[in-house]
Design a protein around this nucleic acid. Structure first.
Length: 258
DNA sequence: CGCTAGAGCCATAAGAGATG
DNA sequence: CATCTCTTATGGCTCTAGCG
């Protein structure tokens, strides 16, 4: 039974991916999965962590990111190709989710110069801490991007973010009160190609922060699957970030030696 | 699994700014 | 200057969340 539910959700996601330029509705997806739209919405949310509408929107923006970095199509054409009839709506949604307007994203080669974080909202003080682990077999993860988001989908500015060079401990302090998802994303190899087999992800949550308490949340990286929501936020260039870190380490070493 | 109120998304249009 | 892109306001409508 559980498997058939997952298969239905997978079928719906396949329908989304192969009909990006169509005006797909939840009704259409529910029909493809052979459920009523009410029941379909519920099981979809249970399996993926987000609603079908948001998942579809995320897939559209992910495809737009790909088209921006791999083709010379203009923004209007790309917005039409991924199912938006209005370039205005597309531009607004893209900027809000990715963190950069479409043309800036293209100019930067698909990377963000820095990852913006939300400004503190007054009542802060919680702490979230834990370990990031990776599978013992298979390719080693590259740099690990970690972020605290309001939703199960990595879009918009995170409340906090960090970069780990390898699996290990992390520590977020001054986390605002609220419900958070810890989302981790690691790429070994070429980030631009975003090949599924080189990407590892982990999602932990919901984590409810209230007051000065400390929460422990361990994140286990796993190979990305079809049912994981795509990463929308523009990430840093991992190779550049790694070389900058290396340069900083060398500078520190020189200072100590002097 | 069905229903419904309200939140949020999208289309449209106009205008400003950037670019070649 | 023409074209492209981005931003913003507005109104309609779809979708989600919550209840039964």
């Amino acid at each position: 039974m559980h498997d058939s539910v997952e298969q239905a959700v997978e079928r719906a996601i396949d329908t989304m991916r192969s009909n990006l330029s169509e005006q797909l509705t939840v009704d259409d997806m529910a029909r493809a999965a052979m459920f009523s739209k009410f029941h379909f919405t519920r099981i979809f949310q249970r399996v993926t962590g987000i609603s079908p509408g948001r998942f579809l929107s995320a897939i559209r923006l992910q495809e737009a990111k790909r088209l921006l970095t791999t083709t010379r199509l203009n923004v209007t054409d790309i917005s039409l190709r991924v199912g938006y009839n209005s370039v205005g709506t597309f531009s607004t949604r893209f900027t809000k989710s990715v963190g950069l307007p479409p043309t800036t994203y293209r100019r930067m080669g698909g990377f963000a110069p820095r990852i913006p974080t939300q400004s503190p909202t007054g009542l802060t003080q919680g702490t979230i801490t834990g370990q990031v682990t990776a599978p013992t077999h298979g390719p080693a993860p590259g740099l690990i991007f970690m972020g605290l988001f309001h939703h199960r989908i990595p879009e918009g500015p995170p409340a906090h973010c960090a970069i780990l060079e390898s699996p290990g401990a992390y520590h977020f302090t001054n986390v605002p009160d609220g419900t958070w998802y810890l989302l981790c994303h690691s790429v070994s190899g070429d980030v631009l190609r975003l090949q599924q087999d080189t990407m590892m992800v982990s999602a932990v949550g919901p984590l409810v922060v209230c007051g000065r308490q400390t929460l422990t949340a361990d994140a286990h990286l796993k190979q990305v699957s079809k049912m994981d929501p795509p990463v929308l936020l523009a990430l840093l260039d991992s190779r550049k970030a790694a070389s900058e870190r290396q340069a900083r380490r060398e500078n520190r070493a020189k200072l100590y030696a002097a």
